[in-house]
């Protein structure tokens, strides 16, 4: 166990934000979960007793008759904002006094940094470069993430859970988002920050970064395993496999979604449903391709003269 190596990574000034993000995320997930739980309990109670549902103020926070439903912004909100500004300023001041922004040697195109890492918030994308060609990892994936985020309000037709924390009313959408945000975005950043060392090789936390380490890894392409040699056959084979993934995966997702989310399934139009399925399957394709690489050393699935997937 090389504690020094671990400390060097964790204490690198530019890695502090990601080290700080982890406890912050844990805290805020706890905060959200606590409120979701209280609201879900209240919802269950109101569902069973219609009389109570008619009179209850429907929040998990206390409310008594006679209390005003609205408060003045001055001072009740403004004091919160003022406090937040002071606290953030204080944190920023202390942070800036105690920790200096990194400054390396002057830029030198002839001396490559190893590992050459993007800023921490882009390490998820850089990690994807291991599994995908740059045109997918660097261009298509970010575009799909942005577009995927933008279509969320238009494909989530569930009217429940608007304006309060809940889990039981929105299991599917919250589950999907948590998977995408925590496992595909934050976890990849953590891997990129803590695990990836020189040569972008995998070093477990505490393992010394060996700049001379060589890994003999033979990656194969999926068509090779099936003994396909001609270019045309490879292109057709790949298209069939990728198309097959979307069809078979789509069918499985359809079967599950129809059963477990009948109301949303009813509400979704054909366009909304297809867009949701496309983004869902594309998102799942990312860990699927990672598994193909990590378990069976498969590099490409679909090989054409113009692009490889």
């Amino acid at each position: 166990m090389d504690w020094r190596q671990l400390w060097e990574i964790a204490s690198a000034p530019d890695n502090i934000p990601i080290v700080g993000l982890i406890p912050l995320l844990i805290f805020y997930i706890y905060l959200a979960w606590k409120q979701a739980k209280a609201n879900d309990e209240l919802i269950a109670e109101l569902e069973t007793s219609p009389a109570m549902a008619k009179t209850h103020h429907r929040k998990s926070w206390p409310f008594r008759p006679g209390w005003q439903k609205e408060v003045h912004v001055w001072p009740f909100l403004l004091r919160m904002e003022f406090l937040a500004a002071i606290i953030v300023s204080a944190i920023l001041m202390v942070w800036s006094i105690t920790l200096s922004a990194p400054l390396e040697e002057p830029s030198n195109p002839n001396l490559t940094m190893n590992p050459a890492k993007a800023p921490w918030y882009f390490l998820g994308l850089q990690e994807m470069l291991v599994y995908f060609d740059p045109w997918i990892a660097g261009v298509v994936m970010p575009t799909l993430i942005i577009v995927g985020l933008m279509v969320i309000p238009y494909i989530d037709t569930n009217p429940l859970g608007s304006g309060y924390y809940t889990w039981k009313q929105r299991k599917f959408s919250i589950g999907t988002f948590l998977f995408g945000f925590l496992f595909l975005w934050v976890a990849m950043i953590i891997i990129g920050t803590f695990i990836r060392g020189p040569g972008w090789q995998w070093f477990w936390p505490g393992q010394t970064w060996d700049h001379n380490r060589l890994i003999y890894e033979v990656n194969r392409d999926l068509p090779d395993i099936f003994g396909i040699t001609s270019n045309l056959a490879k292109a057709i084979f790949g298209a069939v496999v990728v198309g097959g993934y979307y069809l078979a995966g789509g069918f499985i997702a359809h079967a599950l979604f129809r059963r477990y989310n009948p109301k949303d399934y009813q509400r979704l139009s054909l366009l909304q449903y297809s867009i949701m399925m496309f983004f869902l399957l594309t998102m799942v394709a990312l860990p699927a391709k990672m598994l193909l690489r990590l378990l069976w050393h498969i590099k490409y699935v679909w090989i054409t003269p113009w692009f490889n997937v």
């Binding site: 400054l103 390396e104 195109p109 940094m113 890492k117 800023p119 470069l129 660097g138 261009v139 692009f307």
Partner: peptide
């Protein structure tokens, strides 16, 4: 500096691969 130079080099190299 080296940090920024190589981060931006890595970042913009991806743009080479834009479809």
């Amino acid at each position: 500096d080296q940090l920024g130079f190589w981060a931006v080099t890595v970042g913009t190299n991806m743009a080479r691969a834009t479809p």
